[in-house]
């Protein structure tokens, strides 16, 4: 399948996404940050029971937490971004790419058909997807871009 076909036909669930890292909204920021570090992710989904209520990212850490006294002990619900944009498992991937470009976010929580958060789709994953479908082009690249054989190979 080439890239054009893939963009037209594939959905978010085809592209694949990691399971979400989540935390309940009444937990302290400190615990959310520890969990992000341990799981090596740039964003965490904030839940109320099983429902998605917000998102907290590395960016939010920079702008709302670091250097501001006492913020690590606040409830994460006070510093999260509430009602985030989402992607849906059956949504065409091209719609999601457009959304990334238009709105400028780096992560989208993925919801399934009954509104449960089932994953997080990142810009990085989207670029993986694009490069997967140009794989012949990429995998056949020499290790440096201007590498040309100067003599006949073999022996």
């Amino acid at each position: 399948m080439n890239l054009r076909q893939a963009l037209e036909n594939e959905t978010v669930s085809h592209v694949g996404f990691p399971a979400p890292v989540t935390i309940q909204q009444n937990q302290p920021v400190r615990r959310a940050v520890e969990r992000m570090k341990r799981r090596r992710v740039g964003c965490i989904l904030i839940l109320d029971g099983e429902n998605l209520v917000g998102i907290f990212t590395e960016r939010d850490l920079i702008t709302r937490v670091l250097g501001q006294r006492g913020t690590m002990d606040l409830a994460i619900s006070e510093l999260m971004t509430p009602n985030p944009e989402v992607a849906r498992t059956d949504e065409p991937i091209k719609e999601v790419l457009s959304r990334f470009l238009r709105k400028g976010m780096r992560h989208l929580p993925v919801l399934d058909s009954i509104e449960r958060p089932v994953g997080t789709l990142s810009v990085r994953r989207a670029v993986h997807f694009l490069s997967d479908h140009t794989s012949d082009t990429l995998y056949n690249l020499p290790p440096t871009h201007n590498q040309v054989p100067t003599s006949r190979g073999g022996g």
């Binding site: 054009r4 963009l7 810009v123 989207a126």
Partner: peptide
């Protein structure tokens, strides 16, 4: 940045990935 890549690719396929 990664975003620059997406922007470039969308400029090549504007009918598929609408940037605006």
């Amino acid at each position: 940045s990664i975003r620059d890549m997406l922007q470039f690719l969308s400029s090549k396929y504007p009918e598929l990935i609408q940037a605006s």
